[in-house]
Design a binder for these strands. Structure first.
Lengths: 228, 228
DNA sequence: CTAGGCTATTGGCGATCCGCCAATAGTTCC
DNA sequence: GGAACTATTGGCGGATCGCCAATAGCCTAG
């Protein structure tokens, strides 16, 4: 645009320079910078939707320029997907395996507890990705989420000792995936609006899952009518 | 633009072109045009995400120019919100009230059935809005959805005869809202991936809601531990 | 049947943001 | 101290959005 008004001296850069030397170019290690950018992006995406967070904003928050973001992550969409993957890596769906001789209910309770703990520690990043800032229905994003959800489903099946991973019926998998949506919504209301206590979250998540697999699933797979 | 398009060889426009002359400026009634634009937007948003549908695309699909879209709806975001409101209007959360003397289970079954029927008839628009093309975490959109979900929650409370609308506990409302997310996910898998049959949908939705209010809710509101 | 007004519709201007890449400047190692 | 290495910058070009003055269908009065 208006590249005019560049005096020959070419000094006097942006007046809003940080307290350091005005043109300090701070050089970080690859992984450090990468992490910092991801954190800044998470913070911004946790408070307003994807479409309203400009790359420029993320860059400014990280104290770098837009070009660097593209250098590290490629597209804005790529940055978002990277953030998603990163979050899914940080919240590895609960692996139970506490002790061998326990009831499924105990394992489930433990598993849910651990999961809530992890979510709570990463709540900002969770809200930035799962919580809905998303870019919606992107095939790649959907693929990532689908895989994560399938892993989560496998984990649930394992915790409850329902079936060998390969043998679960489509109905069961679908049911558990929908339970995942249920849990996500409850978590969002817990984190963003404090509509549940953590105690309530725990009870709700465990009890609901048990009811689904013990009562709802049999009713679904029973082929005959009698839906009541 | 192409004002010379009447030459014989220059025919063969898009096969779906209207029977009018190529450059005809077709003037429609306000409501007609509005509805047509909304339908075109729904069709496009049903197959790819919000960010990848340009206003230009919607305009071309509707056979008009971009400017007209802004004239009718203002911002792109406004258009999307309008579409959402429109969809929520078209799918008025099931009003049961079938007959007076029925059991809650029967009313619920009926209500779910009616809801599934409506969704199926409007599946394209449903997928375009609920189904996830969304713009994510927009405050206005969230407000719209929240109101719709609250109405839906009231409806469920009414169908099951649980409490007078004003007296429902926050826990109940939150639980039912999360059930809404459960139902939405199941519906998406049903419509977009055919992972459930309609029969299964019906059973799953009714049975789950009953289990939630009869078993899970009491466990949540019971203050003591014993979540086992 | 023509003139004139009403308003649906157009076309294009300015601004914002994204994607990229050649040039620049810290950092390290010899 | 100099040279190689690479993190970082700055800006160009393209796509899209938001808007508004000008245009042109359609309807009614005379």
């Amino acid at each position: 645009m208006n590249s005019a008004a560049r005096s020959p001296s070419a000094g006097a850069r942006s007046p809003s320079a940080p307290a350091r030397s005005p043109t300090a170019r701070i050089r970080l290690d690859y992984d450090e910078r990468r992490r910092q950018i991801l954190d800044c992006a998470a913070a911004l995406l946790a408070e307003r939707p994807y479409g309203e967070v400009a790359m420029e904003d993320v860059a400014r928050a990280a104290g770098v320029t837009r070009g660097l973001l593209h250098h590290y992550f490629g597209t804005k969409r790529d940055l978002y997907l990277e953030l998603t993957k990163d979050m899914l890596r940080a919240i590895p769906v609960q692996v139970p395996e506490c002790a061998a001789a326990t009831t499924p209910e105990e394992r489930l309770s433990d598993s849910v507890d651990r999961w809530l703990e992890t979510i709570w520690r990463n709540r900002e990043m969770w809200l930035a990705t799962v919580g809905g800032a998303g870019l919606g229905r992107d095939p790649e994003a959907e693929r990532i989420w689908d895989r994560a959800r399938d892993i989560s489903v496998d984990s649930m099946i394992g915790v409850l000792g329902l079936a060998s991973p390969g043998e679960a019926s489509p109905a069961l998998r679908g049911l558990l995936r929908s339970y995942g949506a249920f849990a996500e919504n409850a978590t969002r209301e817990w984190l963003a609006h404090k509509r549940f206590t953590r105690q309530q979250m725990h009870t709700m998540l465990t009890e609901t899952l048990l009811r689904l697999v013990e009562d709802v699933l049999p009713a679904m797979t029973r082929p005959a009518t009698t839906s009541r």
